[in-house]
Simulated assay, not measured.
Amino acid sequence: MTPSSTSPDPTDPVPVAVYLVDDHAVFRSGVRAELADEPGLRVVGEAGTVPDAIDGIVATAPDVVLLDVHMPAGGGVAVLRGVLDRIGSAATLSTTAASTTAASTTAGPATPGPTSPVFLALSVSDAAEDVIATIRAGARGYVTKTIAGSELADAVRRVADGDAVFSPRLAGFVLDSFTGKSSAPEPPLDPELDSLTRRELEVLRLLARGYTYREIAEELFISIKTVETHASNVLRKTQQSNRNALTRWAATRHIG
């Protein structure tokens, strides 16, 4: 029987499976649309929270994860570590089960355990501490959200092929860090800071600069009531009692 003309050509390369992680649904939709028309790429899932991202990545086993850096509950670093921990545990269980089976039967070679995807950070931040922390956690590259759609698609293909990819000047941060020449402080884990949403972090920066609630509302094009809500959330998450304490807390982290 003659194969259908719609049957896939077995010689065609397998598309790169991509998973999107970002806490802004509108941004994820935009990235998905940008990648939809790119040859050789296929978006297999997306998530907006750290737990959902870890579960989704482990379940779909993508080739590349496009990873937001600043998200509540630990951000991109927490996703990276969570996935690597889960995959490492699964691989250990798979190896143990295969060894047990092989010892009791004449079964063939053991089935390999799950492999880790490649992580490419896609962030609004180009701060040295964010770049270094994300790369140290295991990401293969780091690009900023000013990147064009075609350039992002190319970056995905390159990291899938084993390259390391960085937006201009960001590679220098990593090289300086690993050669001991970096002037940026070693980025410590900061669960309180990582727990802030992007909007809460924007409000925090403006509060630290001495802006009033009204000025913050005008700067961010939101209502004063919304500013008050964000400020209350920031105080609660950072465990600070008042604005003066919050300003001192922010200054120790060079926020402002």
Score class of each variant (00 low, 15 high):
P13I: 10
D23R: 00
G162S: 05
L235I: 00
T247F: 00
Y211L: 12
K237I: 07
R157T: 06
L206I: 05
V83N: 04
A251E: 15
R236A: 15
L20R: 08
I216K: 06
F119A: 12
A33N: 11
L120M: 11
S99Q: 12
G141D: 04
G75C: 02
E151N: 07
G108T: 13
P72H: 02
S89V: 11
E151L: 09
A91Y: 01
L189G: 01
S195D: 15
E219T: 13
D190G: 06
A184Q: 02
S7H: 10
A133N: 09
A36E: 13
G74N: 03
E129F: 00
R209N: 10
A33H: 14
S125L: 08
A245G: 14
V159C: 05
S104P: 03
S94Q: 12
L207P: 01
G210Y: 00
A102Y: 02
G162Y: 08
I216H: 08
I87W: 00
A231Q: 11
D37Y: 09
V64A: 10
T100V: 14
V69Y: 12
R140P: 05
P62E: 03
A25E: 14
D176G: 12
V83M: 06
L175A: 13
V31C: 05
R32E: 14
R209M: 06
I216Q: 07
R236N: 12
D130M: 13
G82Q: 07
L152F: 02
V143A: 03
V165T: 09
P191K: 10
V69F: 09
P112L: 12
P185S: 10
Y213K: 13
T106R: 09
E151W: 00
A53C: 11
L35W: 08
I135L: 03
Q239D: 15
V203E: 07
V79W: 01
D163K: 10
T146M: 04
E215M: 14
G180L: 05
T226V: 12
T111F: 01
S4R: 10
F119R: 03
G138N: 01
V156W: 12
A153D: 01
F178A: 00
G149D: 09
P185A: 09
R169S: 13
S241R: 15
V203Q: 08
A110G: 11
E215I: 08
T111G: 03
L170T: 06
T111M: 06
R236Q: 13
A137N: 07
E228G: 06
D23Y: 03
T146L: 11
V65H: 01
S116Y: 00
V58H: 04
D176C: 04
A103C: 00
